[in-house]
C-alpha cells in the first residue's frame, strides 16, 4: 500500500477508534490494536507502540478538563501511580521478551473482559456503605467532590493494599499491550477501594498518561514506535476522543454500546484464534 493511502486509512480508522473509546469509556487502544493488526496487517509490536502514544495524548488531553471540575483526586492518583508505573516498566520489559503470538492471545482475553465489562455497565450497583478505614485519613486519601447540586460529597477509601496490588496488574497490562487499561484501574478503585464512580473514572483518566509514559521510553529504545504509523494514529485517536467527549456523552448511547460490545467480542475471538494459529 502506498504511504499516502495507508496514512489516510489509518487516520480515519484511528478517529473511529478514538470516538468509540471515548463513547464507551474503554479508551482508544482497545479497538486500535486489533484494527491495525487484523485489518492493516501491522506487526503487533508496531501497533502496540503507536497505541501507547495515542493513550498518552488522549489521557493528558482529557485529564486537563477533569482537574478543573474537582472530581479527580491528585493524592489517590499519585499514590496508586507508584504501583502502576512499576507495573508498566515491568510490562514493557515483558513485552520485549514474550513471543508476539502470546501477546495476541493476552490481548484477545483483555478484549473479552472489556466486552463483558461494557455489557455490565448498564446494571451497575451503587457502592455499599462501609465503616471508615483509618488508613484513608492517615494517607490523606479521603476527600470531597461536587455532588451536582452545589454541595460536596465526602468519601473515604478502603482495602488499600488490594487496590494497590490490582493497580500493579493494571500497569503491567498497560506496558505489555500498549493500552490505557482504564477498565482495570476503575475496577480497582471502584469495586475494591470503594471510591465513588465519578472520582474513580476521572482519577483513572489522570493516571493513564503517567502510567503509559513509564513504558513509552522502553518502547522507544526498542524501536517499537514507527513515525509513519505513530503520526496518523496519535492525531486520529486524539481528534476522535475529543469529538467523542464533546458530543457523544450526551447522546443516547445504549444501542451504540451494544453494537460496540459485539464488535469487541468478535475482535477478541479473532485475535485469540490468530494468536493460536500463529498468523
Amino acid at each position: 500500500m502506498p504511504l499516502l493511502l495507508f496514512t489516510s486509512l489509518v487516520f480515519a480508522g484511528s478517529i473511529a477508534a478514538g470516538l468509540l473509546g471515548a463513547l464507551t469509556g474503554l479508551g482508544g487502544g482497545v479497538v486500535l490494536v486489533p484494527l491495525l493488526t487484523l485489518i492493516f496487517h501491522v506487526d503487533i509490536r508496531y501497533a502496540i507502540g503507536a497505541s501507547l502514544i495515542s493513550v498518552i495524548a488522549t489521557s493528558s488531553g482529557a485529564a486537563a478538563a477533569y482537574v478543573r471540575e474537582g472530581f479527580s483526586s491528585v493524592r489517590i492518583g499519585m499514590f496508586l501511580e507508584v504501583a502502576t508505573t512499576i507495573g508498566a516498566v515491568f510490562g514493557a520489559f515483558l513485552a520485549t521478551r514474550v513471543p508476539t503470538r502470546a501477546l495476541a492471545i493476552v490481548f484477545g482475553l483483555v478484549l473479552l473482559y472489556s466486552a463483558w465489562l461494557s455489557w455490565q455497565q448498564s446494571r451497575r450497583a451503587e457502592p455499599t456503605p462501609h465503616p471508615a478505614n483509618p488508613w484513608s485519613d492517615r494517607l490523606r486519601m479521603s476527600g470531597t467532590y461536587p455532588d451536582g447540586h452545589g454541595g460536596l460529597c465526602h468519601y473515604s477509601v478502603d482495602r488499600i493494599p488490594a487496590g494497590f496490588a490490582t493497580m500493579f496488574g493494571a500497569g503491567t497490562l498497560s506496558g505489555l499491550l500498549g493500552i490505557g487499561s482504564g477498565a482495570v484501574k476503575v475496577l480497582a478503585m471502584d469495586r475494591i477501594m470503594r471510591i465513588p464512580f465519578k472520582v474513580s473514572t476521572t482519577t483513572s483518566n489522570f493516571m493513564i498518561g503517567v502510567t503509559a509514559a513509564a513504558s513509552a521510553g522502553i518502547y522507544l529504545h526498542r524501536g517499537y514506535i514507527d513515525p509513519a504509523l505513530a503520526f496518523p494514529v496519535m492525531l486520529g485517536v486524539l481528534a476522535g476522543s475529543l469529538l467523542g467527549a464533546r458530543y457523544l456523552v450526551r447522546a443516547r448511547v445504549s444501542l451504540l454500546r451494544s453494537i460496540f460490545t459485539l464488535v469487541i467480542l468478535a475482535l477478541g475471538v479473532e485475535m485469540i484464534i490468530n494468536g493460536i494459529r500463529g498468523v
Binding site: 502514544i53 489521557s59 493528558s60 498518561g209 503517567v210 509514559a213 522507544l220 514506535i225 496519535m234
Partner: peptide, 8 residues
C-alpha cells in the same frame, strides 16, 4: 513524541 512523553 518525546514532547508528548514529557508532558505527564
Amino acid at each position: 513524541i518525546l514532547f508528548l512523553i514529557a508532558t505527564p
